[in-house]
């Protein structure tokens, strides 16, 4: 089992074979559970996109009919646009905020444990509380945010969750605030891998704090950033709970997202084929982004 270096051409073949065996042996315990209980149902649900199924009767092959209905459906396009809007706002803002606070809270500060805990609290606070308090803060007439905006001379501050234009920014704001602590934890773990002597060497060279951040911290965190970026992208495209509690997709359809459409069409309305077709679209988008990021990361690793 032990692999020694350097290898001759002959042993390299054997090494590859034994590597395959060793690699799989590591992956197998997780993969078994994963394959049966996640991969199979996922493939089944994607196959449903070509069927007509109400969860009870025998499924009927309909070819591309579900997709045809989808591209002519106004609600689908609205939800797709809203989801993309949400992701474009949510991903970079959360990423920057999480990274910034992780770096800040990785320092020797008095009370650092308290601050870390406090920043993680939004993630474990009841969603109803989150929705009510954010809606209160952003209340068009009485909310402190708009009172502040009026005080600094903005006569017509946004209507936030009661306005079709501003509801999505309000949701993004609340969601960045909620997820910040979650991704900060991941960055904190990543920061522990950076050897301290790198910073010391840089300091000897006279690098400023900002230079150290860009030249040491950011590159060293690349694998973590890759992980955070992908998880953030995926979770943004799948966003459900927060929107459901904060605006229920409203007013009108202004914050309706794809997951809500998938849920409504599938389990609520019993149109599982159509629901799967929508998830297929979501899946393809997210997968494309992921693969692009994956390739980009692999290139930068070399």
């Amino acid at each position: 089992m032990t692999v020694t270096l350097p290898a001759s051409p002959r042993t390299q073949v054997g090494r590859r074979r034994s590597n395959t065996w060793v690699g799989w042996s590591f992956i197998l315990p997780n993969f078994l559970g994963f394959a049966v209980l996640t991969l199979v149902p996922v493939i089944a649900s994607l196959a449903l996109a070509f069927l007509d199924w109400d969860s009870y009767s025998t499924p009927r092959w309909v070819g591309l009919a579900n997709f045809e209905r989808m591209i002519h459906n106004d609600t689908f396009w609205t939800a797709l646009r809203n989801t993309a809007y949400y992701a474009v706002g949510h991903v970079p803002l959360t990423l920057c905020a999480a990274l910034g606070f992780a770096v800040l809270l990785n320092q020797r500060l008095r009370g650092v444990r308290f601050f870390r805990t406090a920043l993680f609290f939004p993630y474990i606070t009841s969603l109803v509380a989150v929705a009510v308090v954010w809606n209160m803060l952003l209340s068009p007439e009485l909310g402190p945010v708009n009172q502040f905006l009026r005080a600094i001379g903005i006569d017509h501050p946004p209507g936030w969750t009661t306005s079709t234009t501003w509801a999505m920014p309000a949701v993004i704001l609340a969601s960045v605030w909620r997820d910040l602590g979650y991704y900060m934890i991941l960055y904190l773990a990543g920061l522990q891998t950076i050897p301290g002597e790198l910073y010391e060497a840089a300091q000897v060279d006279g690098a400023s704090g900002w230079q150290r951040f860009w030249n040491i911290t950011v590159p060293s965190l690349r694998p973590t950033t890759f992980f955070v970026l992908i998880m953030l992208t995926i979770s943004s495209f799948k966003v459900f709970d927060l929107v459901q509690v904060m605006t229920e997709g409203g007013p009108g359809r202004s914050t309706l997202v794809l997951s809500q459409v998938i849920f409504r069409e599938g389990i609520t309305q019993g149109r599982f084929g159509y629901s799967s077709a929508v998830s297929m679209v979501l899946f393809v988008i997210v997968l494309t982004i992921t693969v692009v990021q994956f390739q980009w990361q692999r290139r930068s690793e070399r």
Binding site: L37, P41, S55, F240, I267, S279, L287
Partner: peptide, 19 residues
């Protein structure tokens, strides 16, 4: 590994019934 990643991309609402 990509297969692993891909499954995260499917919302649970979509495959909860087959599961």
């Amino acid at each position: 590994f990509l297969a692993y990643l891909a499954t995260i991309a499917v919302p649970w609402q979509a495959y909860m019934v087959p599961q």
